[in-house]
Design a protein around this nucleic acid. Sequence first.
DNA 1: CAGGGGTGCTAGCTCTTGCAAGCGCAGCAG
DNA 2: CTGCTGCGCTTGCAAGAGCTAGCACCCCTG
Lengths: 176, 176
Amino acid sequence: MQGPGEFVSGQVRSVREKVDQLAGTVAAEAQQVSAVRSQVGEYIREQRNAARVSLRELARTAGVSNPYLSQVERGLRKPSAEILAAIARGLKISAESLYEQAGMLDRRAGNPDTVAAIRSDEHLSERHRAVLLELYETYVREHAATGGTAAADAPSTTQDHPAGAPPAPHPSKESA
Amino acid sequence: MQGPGEFVSGQVRSVREKVDQLAGTVAAEAQQVSAVRSQVGEYIREQRNAARVSLRELARTAGVSNPYLSQVERGLRKPSAEILAAIARGLKISAESLYEQAGMLDRRAGNPDTVAAIRSDEHLSERHRAVLLELYETYVREHAATGGTAAADAPSTTQDHPAGAPPAPHPSKESA
DNA sequence: CAGGGGTGCTAGCTCTTGCAAGCGCAGCAG
DNA sequence: CTGCTGCGCTTGCAAGAGCTAGCACCCCTG
């Protein structure tokens, strides 16, 4: 039979254990959140450096303030989807890629073979398939020639299309 | 020859016209933003009603406050991606569907497998991925518009605007 | 040297998001 | 009737997003 003192100290110990446990969970989550911020920030800086663009220039083309972009890159702030989309536009990359880095969007498991996917894609005409495949091969070669470094993203290397590639109209869209 | 009074009143009228024009633009944008808020809010309410779930119950399972959920449904607040993901979980629907309704994410045309293959292809830089996706989507739209005939290869131009990027936020004044 | 241009960052501020506390209404049971 | 539970909504607030004004540093030119 426990005495009252023993019972109380048992309860205190039990509460302490629970608090410790919750504190651990909270700390772990905070760490995770901070890591995700740094991840998208690091990624943005990488892409920016690869494109040889200054922080100010990217902020200008993205339409965000340069101090804020600096804070985002350093993981001090967590940008909204809207800001991420703007930064993606400035970087000329897809917004989805930044959403993924930010943990907002899961990377969809796709067919690991891009060539096979394009070849068997029934949404495309034969000619368009050929154009896409040629462009793809060109990009892969460029990527390989630069040792897989992101230097392939420098502006001077991304504006060219292979000869024979018919330009496509930009689909009109956009609603705020 | 104009008199000074006529010149001034002409200037005033010109300024008024410009102000009216800008006010119209601002109002139109505000309307658009408000419409998108209502759109995702309406969509959430529709899904909630379809699931026969009360606002409080959904707020509980989603882990958001019920007044806030109410405001979101009525278009009074613009929820973050995190909140949208939580609501999607509560509704047992995909977060992407809510992102789309919120205008954060554009639905990609074409075969999802091809899109996923390009997006996850590590032989490509992020910029090249964006270019290929843009071109792919353009071709898919052309293919669909012409009923899939091989004559669908009219000249067109790609622009540096990835399909995944919603419009830019309001441009900020450069701080430097 | 001073001045100009570039770079990225600090600090203070305003506005928006998301919350807690609580409201008013309806329906039901005792 | 009162008290309880459910419903969705109002209000005020704290925290954080994103901005502006400006700083510190670097390099170059006259």
